[in-house]
Protein backbone atom coordinates (compact mmCIF):
# COMPACT_ATOMS: atom_id res chain seq x y z
CA UNK A 1 0.00 0.00 0.00
CA UNK A 2 2.79 2.36 1.05
CA UNK A 3 4.73 1.39 -2.03
CA UNK A 4 1.73 2.19 -4.21
CA UNK A 5 1.33 5.62 -2.65
CA UNK A 6 5.07 6.34 -3.12
CA UNK A 7 4.90 5.26 -6.75
CA UNK A 8 1.91 7.55 -7.32
CA UNK A 9 3.80 10.47 -5.76
CA UNK A 10 6.87 9.90 -7.92
CA UNK A 11 4.69 9.61 -10.99
CA UNK A 12 2.87 12.83 -10.10
CA UNK A 13 6.06 14.75 -9.41
CA UNK A 14 7.71 13.61 -12.63
CA UNK A 15 4.65 14.58 -14.66
CA UNK A 16 4.55 18.01 -13.05
CA UNK A 17 8.24 18.68 -13.72
CA UNK A 18 7.68 17.73 -17.33
CA UNK A 19 4.66 19.98 -17.63
CA UNK A 20 6.48 22.92 -16.09
CA UNK A 21 9.38 22.56 -18.47
CA UNK A 22 6.90 22.39 -21.34
CA UNK A 23 5.13 25.50 -20.09
CA UNK A 24 8.44 27.37 -20.11
CA UNK A 25 8.94 26.46 -23.74
CA UNK A 26 5.42 27.64 -24.50
CA UNK A 27 5.74 30.90 -22.57
CA UNK A 28 9.06 32.03 -23.99
CA UNK A 29 7.83 33.05 -27.47
CA UNK A 30 4.78 34.69 -25.92
CA UNK A 31 6.88 36.79 -23.59
CA UNK A 32 9.30 37.75 -26.34
CA UNK A 33 6.27 38.87 -28.34
CA UNK A 34 5.28 41.04 -25.38
CA UNK A 35 8.73 42.60 -25.33
CA UNK A 36 8.40 43.37 -29.04
CA UNK A 37 5.01 44.98 -28.44
CA UNK A 38 6.52 47.00 -25.61
CA UNK A 39 9.31 48.27 -27.85
CA UNK A 40 6.81 49.12 -30.58
CA UNK A 41 4.91 51.17 -28.06
CA UNK A 42 8.13 52.83 -26.90
CA UNK A 43 8.87 53.60 -30.54
CA UNK A 44 5.60 55.51 -30.77
CA UNK A 45 6.06 57.28 -27.44
CA UNK A 46 9.51 58.50 -28.48
CA UNK A 47 8.84 59.18 -32.14
CA UNK A 48 5.49 60.94 -31.93
CA UNK A 49 4.68 61.72 -28.32
CA UNK A 50 8.19 62.70 -27.23
CA UNK A 51 7.09 61.38 -23.86
CA UNK A 52 9.79 61.51 -21.18
CA UNK A 53 11.24 58.07 -20.58
CA UNK A 54 10.00 57.45 -17.00
CA UNK A 55 6.43 58.19 -18.06
CA UNK A 56 6.71 56.21 -21.29
CA UNK A 57 7.98 53.14 -19.42
CA UNK A 58 5.20 53.41 -16.86
CA UNK A 59 2.61 53.50 -19.63
CA UNK A 60 4.14 50.48 -21.31
CA UNK A 61 4.11 48.55 -18.03
CA UNK A 62 0.43 49.35 -17.59
CA UNK A 63 -0.38 47.82 -20.97
CA UNK A 64 1.44 44.53 -20.32
CA UNK A 65 0.92 41.59 -17.99
CA UNK A 66 3.28 40.27 -15.33
CA UNK A 67 6.05 39.17 -15.28
CA UNK A 68 7.13 41.22 -18.34
CA UNK A 69 5.34 44.35 -17.11
CA UNK A 70 7.35 44.22 -13.87
CA UNK A 71 10.55 44.81 -15.81
CA UNK A 72 9.32 48.11 -17.23
CA UNK A 73 7.47 49.21 -14.11
CA UNK A 74 10.60 48.67 -12.04
CA UNK A 75 12.81 50.58 -14.49
CA UNK A 76 10.34 53.47 -14.55
CA UNK A 77 10.11 53.57 -10.76
CA UNK A 78 13.89 53.62 -10.41
CA UNK A 79 14.21 56.46 -12.90
CA UNK A 80 11.52 58.54 -11.23
CA UNK A 81 12.87 57.96 -7.72
CA UNK A 82 15.52 60.65 -8.24
CA UNK A 83 18.53 58.79 -6.91
CA UNK A 84 20.68 60.31 -9.57
CA UNK A 85 21.30 57.08 -11.44
CA UNK A 86 21.52 56.86 -15.19
CA UNK A 87 19.07 55.07 -17.45
CA UNK A 88 21.49 52.24 -18.20
CA UNK A 89 22.02 51.53 -14.49
CA UNK A 90 18.30 51.62 -13.64
CA UNK A 91 17.44 49.53 -16.67
CA UNK A 92 20.09 46.94 -15.93
CA UNK A 93 19.07 46.61 -12.29
CA UNK A 94 15.39 46.26 -13.17
CA UNK A 95 15.98 43.67 -15.89
CA UNK A 96 18.46 41.60 -13.94
CA UNK A 97 16.19 41.50 -10.89
CA UNK A 98 12.96 40.75 -12.75
CA UNK A 99 14.36 38.37 -15.35
CA UNK A 100 14.27 35.30 -13.07
CA UNK A 101 10.49 35.43 -13.00
CA UNK A 102 10.20 35.22 -16.79
CA UNK A 103 10.68 32.21 -19.03
CA UNK A 104 13.04 34.02 -21.33
CA UNK A 105 16.67 33.13 -21.94
CA UNK A 106 19.99 35.04 -22.00
CA UNK A 107 19.97 36.00 -25.74
CA UNK A 108 16.90 38.23 -25.40
CA UNK A 109 18.13 39.55 -22.07
CA UNK A 110 21.38 40.67 -23.67
CA UNK A 111 19.46 42.39 -26.45
CA UNK A 112 17.40 44.33 -23.89
CA UNK A 113 20.44 45.26 -21.81
CA UNK A 114 22.24 46.54 -24.89
CA UNK A 115 19.19 48.64 -25.73
CA UNK A 116 19.22 50.05 -22.18
CA UNK A 117 22.69 51.45 -22.69
CA UNK A 118 21.50 53.75 -25.45
CA UNK A 119 17.97 54.51 -24.28
CA UNK A 120 17.22 58.19 -23.69
CA UNK A 121 20.75 59.23 -24.53
CA UNK A 122 20.33 60.56 -28.06
CA UNK A 123 17.97 62.26 -30.47
CA UNK A 124 14.67 60.72 -31.54
CA UNK A 125 15.97 59.51 -34.91
CA UNK A 126 18.82 57.63 -33.30
CA UNK A 127 16.59 56.18 -30.60
CA UNK A 128 14.20 54.80 -33.18
CA UNK A 129 17.08 53.09 -34.97
CA UNK A 130 18.21 51.41 -31.78
CA UNK A 131 14.66 50.30 -31.07
CA UNK A 132 14.29 48.88 -34.59
CA UNK A 133 17.52 46.94 -34.20
CA UNK A 134 16.43 45.50 -30.87
CA UNK A 135 13.05 44.55 -32.32
CA UNK A 136 14.70 42.71 -35.22
CA UNK A 137 16.89 40.77 -32.84
CA UNK A 138 13.92 39.89 -30.67
CA UNK A 139 11.96 38.75 -33.71
CA UNK A 140 14.77 36.38 -34.61
CA UNK A 141 14.78 35.08 -31.06
CA UNK A 142 11.03 34.69 -31.16
CA UNK A 143 11.28 32.53 -34.27
CA UNK A 144 13.94 30.39 -32.63
CA UNK A 145 11.80 30.13 -29.52
CA UNK A 146 8.84 28.94 -31.57
CA UNK A 147 10.94 26.26 -33.25
CA UNK A 148 12.13 25.14 -29.81
CA UNK A 149 8.58 25.10 -28.59
CA UNK A 150 7.46 22.79 -31.40
CA UNK A 151 10.43 20.53 -30.88
CA UNK A 152 10.54 20.32 -27.13
CA UNK A 153 7.15 21.17 -25.65
CA UNK A 154 5.53 17.77 -26.20
CA UNK A 155 8.84 16.03 -25.68
CA UNK A 156 9.18 17.54 -22.22
CA UNK A 157 5.69 16.51 -21.24
CA UNK A 158 6.10 12.89 -22.28
CA UNK A 159 9.65 12.76 -20.97
CA UNK A 160 8.45 13.79 -17.51
CA UNK A 161 5.82 11.04 -17.36
CA UNK A 162 8.08 8.40 -18.84
CA UNK A 163 11.04 9.18 -16.58
CA UNK A 164 8.75 9.00 -13.56
CA UNK A 165 7.40 5.66 -14.83
CA UNK A 166 10.96 4.37 -15.26
CA UNK A 167 11.85 5.36 -11.70
CA UNK A 168 8.72 3.63 -10.44
CA UNK A 169 9.55 0.44 -12.36
CA UNK A 170 13.13 0.45 -11.04
CA UNK A 171 11.86 0.90 -7.50
CA UNK A 172 9.36 -1.94 -7.74
Amino acid sequence: MLKLAGAALVLFAGTMIGFMQAAKFAQRPRQIRQLIHALQRLDTEIGYGQTPLPEALARIAAALTAPVSTLFAEASAKLASGNGETVSVCWEQAFKAGWQATSMRPPERDTMLRLGETLGGSGAEDQLKHLKLAMHQLQAEEQAARDDQQKYEKLCRSLGVLTAALVVILMM
Binding site: Q50, T51, T86
Partner: peptide, 14 residues
Protein backbone atom coordinates in the same frame (compact mmCIF):
# COMPACT_ATOMS: atom_id res chain seq x y z
CA UNK B 1 26.69 62.44 -18.34
CA UNK B 2 24.44 61.79 -15.39
CA UNK B 3 23.69 65.49 -14.98
CA UNK B 4 22.72 65.81 -18.63
CA UNK B 5 20.49 62.79 -18.29
CA UNK B 6 18.77 64.22 -15.27
CA UNK B 7 18.24 67.74 -16.60
CA UNK B 8 16.67 66.23 -19.71
CA UNK B 9 14.56 63.86 -17.60
CA UNK B 10 16.41 60.89 -19.10
CA UNK B 11 14.95 61.79 -22.47
CA UNK B 12 17.33 63.63 -24.73
CA UNK B 13 14.99 62.95 -27.64
CA UNK B 14 12.26 65.06 -26.04
Amino acid sequence: RALLERVTNHSLYA
